[in-house]
């Protein structure tokens, strides 16, 4: 038995539209070890949220996972039926969402919503569930939880609601918590608190976290490993410290360079030129080649595989023998 909690192997997910099949995820492979936090970064439309929804088996129609496997504790989630999947959702794998303002049902008190999960998966009776709900609220740092348990979502601030979401997601002590941009909608001080809370609870409850974000700062603070996604592909997978010291893929390097620093005063922020190609006009070779400053003819013709390089994994021809060193 390996200590990999979640292993995504060559997952391909796409949308069946009127224009034909559009591959949104192309052979995505990720591994998450028990007790670790894996950060997934990428810009909008890079497929990071779709990856997490694929794990939950909640891909919006007309999307569908068409290839690969998602191994969770050795079971392939893609082969489970809806009934079996429902038993896993919220119980073994939980998810928290980006928008705490809209992720709670406005017509129920926060207590009722947490109790619903507990009663659904653990068949607790009302009293026990309520006591446990109050415990969970206390655990996520909500002051006077005995009173707050009867509050409605609109009576809580964004940070408080996100705490409630975390309480809800962790109430059944799942092995895996998927956090889809959990701090994006919060202000900066609250962001830090929520991140700290998640990391603290991860230690206490022995939960692994799949952290999806577009904020490299969040990754630096919270993740153990990082996967960089671009246009539906994992272009780099590395240990966090190493990644920040020496990003390998030209896209990762571009991302790093576009972070403004305090030391330098620049007239303009550095950007990666161009935009992500749409699914309809994806280049044949490397998906990043339209925006890459170092591309060669090889890049346009053939997609690079994900290869091991100095302990990391990177998907770029630069690190293979087929790369022709530049004449300069």
């Amino acid at each position: 038995m390996s200590d990999n909690l979640l292993e995504i192997k060559e997952l391909s997910t796409g949308f069946f539209t009127e224009d034909g099949f559009l591959p949104a995820l192309d052979k995505v492979s990720l591994t998450l070890k028990k007790g670790e936090t894996l950060g997934v970064v990428g810009e909008s439309g890079s497929g990071k949220s779709l990856t997490s929804l694929s794990v939950m088996n909640l891909i919006p129609t007309p999307g569908k996972a068409v290839g690969g496997e998602i191994l969770f504790k050795g079971k392939n989630l893609l082969q489970l039926g809806e009934e079996q999947m429902r038993a896993i959702r919220g119980n073994e794998i939980s998810m928290i969402f980006q928008e705490p303002m809209t992720s709670l049902n406005p017509v129920y008190s926060v207590g009722e919503q947490i109790m619903e999960v507990l009663r659904l998966h653990q068949q607790l009776d009302k009293k026990v569930a309520r006591a446990k709900t109050i415990d969970m609220l206390r655990l996520v740092g909500i002051p006077s939880p005995e009173k707050r348990v009867d509050d409605y979502p609109h009576q809580l601030s964004g940070g408080m609601r996100q705490r409630v979401m975390i309480a809800m997601a962790l109430s059944c002590q799942p092995d895996l918590l998927i956090a889809d941009e959990p701090t994006t909608a919060l202000d900066v001080t609250t962001q830090a608190q929520i991140l700290d809370l998640m990391l603290d609870l991860k230690e206490r409850l022995q939960t692994s976290i799949l952290l999806i974000t577009h904020d490299l700062g969040v990754i630096a603070e919270a993740a153990d490993h990082v996967a960089v996604m671009y246009a539906g592909k994992v272009v780099e997978y590395a240990e966090v410290k190493r990644f920040f010291r020496e990003p390998l893929h030209p896209y990762s390097q571009g991302l790093m360079n576009s972070i403004p620093t305090l030391e330098q005063t620049r007239e303009r922020l550095q950007v990666i030129r161009g935009v992500v190609p749409t699914l309809q006009q994806m280049p044949k070779g490397c998906r990043f080649c339209t925006r890459c400053d170092e591309k060669q003819t090889l890049c346009e013709e053939e997609a690079p595989p994900l290869i091991g390089y100095q302990g990391s994994q990177v998907s770029c021809w630069k690190y293979t023998e087929r790369w022709e060193p530049s004449p300069r």
Binding site: R86, R89, G90, S103, L104, N105, P106, A169
Partner: peptide, 26 residues
């Protein structure tokens, strides 16, 4: 399309309960 509906789906609730308990009251 509200996130709280997606959230209860992500928590493993079944469709019938979602429709009557989460959509209808709203």
């Amino acid at each position: 399309e509200m996130e709280y509906v997606e959230a209860v789906r992500a928590l493993g609730q079944n469709n019938l309960v979602i429709v009557f308990k989460h959509v209808l009251p709203n």
